[in-house]
Amino acid sequence: MSVVPHALTPRNAALLLIPPLLWAGNAVIGRMIADLIPPITLNFIRWVLAFVLLLPLAHTILRRNSPLWAHWKHYTVLGLLGVGCYNSFLYLALQTSTPINVTLVGSSMPVFMLLVGALFFQQHVRKRQIAGALLSIVGVLVVLCRGDWHALANVHLVIGDVFVLLATAAWSWYSWLLARTHEPVEARSNWANFLMSQLVFGLFWSAAFSTAEWSGLTGIADPHISWSWPLIAALVYVSVGPAVLAYRFWGLGVQRVGPNIAGFFVNLIPVFTATLSALVLGEMPQLYHAAAFALIIGGIVVSSYKPRT
């Protein structure tokens, strides 16, 4: 079954702008508390807190007679990709790779979206989508090299970059599955129920990955948590913003415009990250930030443009 997207209206664009902004904040916060908590454990705790936040809104979906259990295979896969894998791989990548490498490899998201759609979901890739992908990637590269193309020559791939590729592939597949309509009506008609349905199974994956981390299977020596008020505040943010709200808006946006178009908005993350980092570190945005933003927005417009007939 092919996905029939709606137009990229200002409302739909706003829905897809909010998640990259929240996820950019997630990246900044993640760097700030990297020494306070292991990366995969950070992902697990944030989803546990998100589960608690959603419980008053979506507890009915957990009842024994809920249709959720008849669709457990579907939600097990969504939970694995969206809850268990994506941020676990991303946080883990930052342990062995530099931020510029992580963002550079992650900028391949539109390409992954197009490939997954074409290979597994019978989606036709149009020339304007390819052109839009190239424009957006160029915009990301402008941010990464800070307007100096020679800086890209210093990038060297490490094992962390492989984790980013896995994270990007997992999120692309997750986004395409969001556009399918196999979930029960009770979950589909209520965003909290829909996210809770993924959390029920995703927490098992995330707990398993966190257990492997504390067992030393991920290569992190002496994992520990240094509890403090800054860490608690950070956990509250990553649970409410990047976890609950971002997933809510992303799900709506993907369902309205389709994964191919939504994938381009992910490339706004490094632009927002650069802006937030500038605010946190006191560094003023540069001219290349504006150029990159124009290129990425241009890629979104080109890829979503539909000529009148």
Rank of each mutant, 00 (worst) to 15 (best):
A34K: 07
A34P: 00
L114S: 00
W47I: 05
L119Q: 12
F120V: 12
H74L: 12
K73D: 09
K73E: 02
I61M: 15
G84W: 01
L78A: 11
S107P: 05
L16V: 08
L80D: 02
Y75L: 13
G106Q: 09
A93I: 04
T103K: 10
G117V: 04
N26D: 08
L68R: 00
L36K: 14
N43R: 09
R63K: 14
K73I: 14
I37E: 00
L92D: 01
L21Q: 01
I130R: 04
A93P: 04
Y91C: 03
L57Y: 07
R126I: 03
W72G: 05
L49V: 15
D35G: 15
L22A: 05
C85P: 00
V102E: 02
F89W: 09
R126H: 13
F44G: 04
N43D: 02
V125A: 10
L49I: 14
L90E: 04
L62S: 08
L78G: 02
R64N: 01
F44P: 01
S97G: 13
Q95W: 13
H59V: 00
L78M: 15
T76C: 12
T96D: 09
R126C: 07
L114R: 00
H74T: 09
L80G: 06
G25R: 06
P99N: 06
V48T: 11
